[in-house]
């Protein structure tokens, strides 16, 4: 099997609490990997470990064969945090411009990229609006646009579609699929089951342990379930 774009084998402890327990994950380019699990199960911590903000207590994360954290790998990763990390007193355009420069988008391409990503999230007419006047869903979409700015090879998205209405969510998923077919690896965490169905592969996480990995079809077959939700429950994953 060829080496994945992301190879992780990690344990993470905060003090005496174990957040992630020997999570072993191999992700390939050109797939959408859905991370499924109740809140508090360790999804966000795993995403942060993969993008290099957090570091494993045991084990390591390799992105494109390079041990994280690594600055040149961070250039290839687009990260969208669960909280909207935006500067409220600035306009959408100023936020995008700032992160574009930080992520290494060339000056002369910045304007074009900004308009492109904002069209993807239907915000192209809100560029000059202050972010503090945005609704929750608009902020979410702007965060997503920022993660896409520098054409990353790997997208790590922590609940990207929370608070986004269904028709726009369709559009965003269509974008994900297009990016995937261009060879981008996308990892999303989600609660929404119909989104899970659209993933190439799913990882189910419960109490810091990866309890199952496979395509949605495989997982349903293994457990004789009709829905992903059922499959998740029969793997021992309990909701809240």
């Amino acid at each position: 099997m060829p080496k994945g774009a992301i190879e992780a084998n990690v344990t993470k402890n905060y003090g005496k609490t174990t957040i992630l327990d020997h999570v072993n994950l191999s992700l390939k380019r050109g797939e959408i990997f859905g991370l499924l699990g109740p809140s508090g199960s360790g999804k966000t911590t795993l995403v942060k470990l993969l993008c290099g903000i957090e570091e494993a207590s045991e084990g390591e994360v390799k992105v494109l064969d390079t041990k994280m954290p690594n600055l040149s790998m961070m250039k290839k990763v687009g990260y969208m945090a669960q909280a909207d990390a935006l500067y409220g007193e600035l306009t959408a355009y100023e936020n995008l411009k700032f992160f574009a420069t930080l992520s290494g988008v060339h000056r002369r391409d910045q304007k074009e990229r900004i308009i492109e990503v904002m069209q993807l999230v239907n915000l192209e007419n809100e560029l000059q609006k202050n972010v503090e006047d945005f609704s929750g869903g608009m902020k979410r979409r702007l965060s997503l646009a920022i993660a896409l700015l520098h054409n990353p090879d790997i997208l790590l998205l922590d609940e990207p579609t929370v608070g986004i209405d269904p028709s726009l969510r369709q559009k965003i998923w269509w974008t994900f699929e297009k990016l995937r077919s261009n060879g981008v690896l996308i990892l999303v965490t989600t609660h929404v089951m119909d989104e899970a169905e659209r993933c190439s592969r799913l990882g189910m996480i419960q109490n810091g342990q990866l309890i199952a990995v496979g395509t949605p079809e495989e997982l349903k077959k293994q457990t004789d379930s009709v829905t992903i939700e059922e499959a998740f429950l029969s793997f021992g994953g309990g909701g809240e």
């Binding site: 942060k48 993008c51 290099g52 903000i53 600055l71 040149s72 961070m74 250039k75 990763v77 990260y79 945090a81 909280a83 909207d84 990390a85 935006l86 500067y87 409220g88 992160f99 930080l102 992520s103 290494g104 920022i146």
Partner: peptide, 14 residues
């Protein structure tokens, strides 16, 4: 507190 530090540090800035 607003999470932008983490977001900024997820970029290759030193």
């Amino acid at each position: 507190t607003q999470g932008t530090l983490e977001r900024v540090l997820a970029t290759p800035i030193k």
